[in-house]
């Protein structure tokens, strides 16, 4: 059995929210996401640097060792009759290159993400904006041991939105879903254009009666709804065949809301 519920925005339910509260709430949440992103990504960059440091150190160890006992170790790599065995060195050089590439990608994403926070309402490619928080989402799920699978249908998906708030919305709903999951569970994030909308669909095992309680759309004030209202987006929640799906839908630029 499948049920689809469209989440009501505060305006529709008649809940009275002061504009200032929402703005302040959004700003605080944005800062939290930003600081978490910084913490996650700088930690990972630090790990890449540490691996490079150790690989370089390993090579230095071998090249510097002078005492008799350790010459034997160096001798393993520099054999007079066969020339030097460079395999272990090449292995470490490969590691260094790989770590630099990965660290550089992370640093680039972090840089894009940071610049994005300066933007206000504009027409942007939904995929690109999502891609910038991909690493943050992966680390956020990795910390809990939840496997996050990302499926991006990379068609043109221009949306008029507030990019940092859009990122905040995705982050917040992923976090909501992860609350009910346990280590080893899988959460899928699919993104693509459908029916004149750019949809971000989050699918997880239905936590209800499974191992936790599902955070349903509350009747009163809800911050997630505030975010979606600020973006002019819609939220759909669906349960089907043991799966729980949250769809965040945004109108593609140039299309009218139906």
């Amino acid at each position: 059995m499948s049920t689809i519920r469209k989440e009501q925005t505060p305006g529709q339910t008649g809940t009275f929210i002061k504009a200032g509260d929402v703005t302040e709430g959004l700003r605080n949440a944005q800062l939290q996401v930003l600081s978490r992103a910084l913490a996650h990504l700088t930690h990972d960059i630090q790990n890449h640097l540490a691996t490079i440091y150790e690989s370089a150190g390993w090579m230095k160890d071998l090249l510097q060792w002078k005492n008799k006992q350790r010459l034997g170790l160096v001798g393993r790599f520099f054999k007079r009759d066969r020339g030097p065995d460079l395999k272990p060195f090449l292995g470490h050089l490969d590691t260094i290159q790989k770590e630099v590439e990965q660290g550089s990608t992370l640093s680039q994403r972090l840089n894009n993400f940071a610049h994005r926070q300066e933007e206000t309402r504009s027409i942007v490619d939904g995929h690109k904006v999502l891609e910038e928080i991909q690493e943050v989402l992966l680390r956020q799920s990795g910390e809990k041991g939840v496997r996050l699978e990302l499926e991006m249908n990379r068609d043109a998906a221009m949306i008029e939105t507030d990019p940092p708030i859009f990122q905040l919305a995705v982050f917040d709903y992923v976090e909501q879903l992860m609350e009910g999951l346990k280590s080893g569970d899988c959460l899928t994030l699919e993104a693509g254009s459908r029916d004149g909308q750019f949809q971000v669909r989050l699918t997880s095992p239905d936590p209800e009666g499974y191992h936790g309680s599902r955070r349903e759309e509350p009747a009163g004030r809800d911050f997630s709804r505030d975010i979606m209202e600020a973006l002019g987006g819609q939220v759909y929640r669906q349960t089907s065949d043991g799966k729980y799906v949250i769809t965040l839908a945004f109108i593609l630029a140039g299309r009218e809301a139906s």
Partner: peptide, 13 residues
């Protein structure tokens, strides 16, 4: 894994 394997080798040395 790369980090800890190398560290283990260097401590072994």
């Amino acid at each position: 894994i790369d980090f800890i394997t190398t560290l283990s080798n260097r401590l072994g040395m």
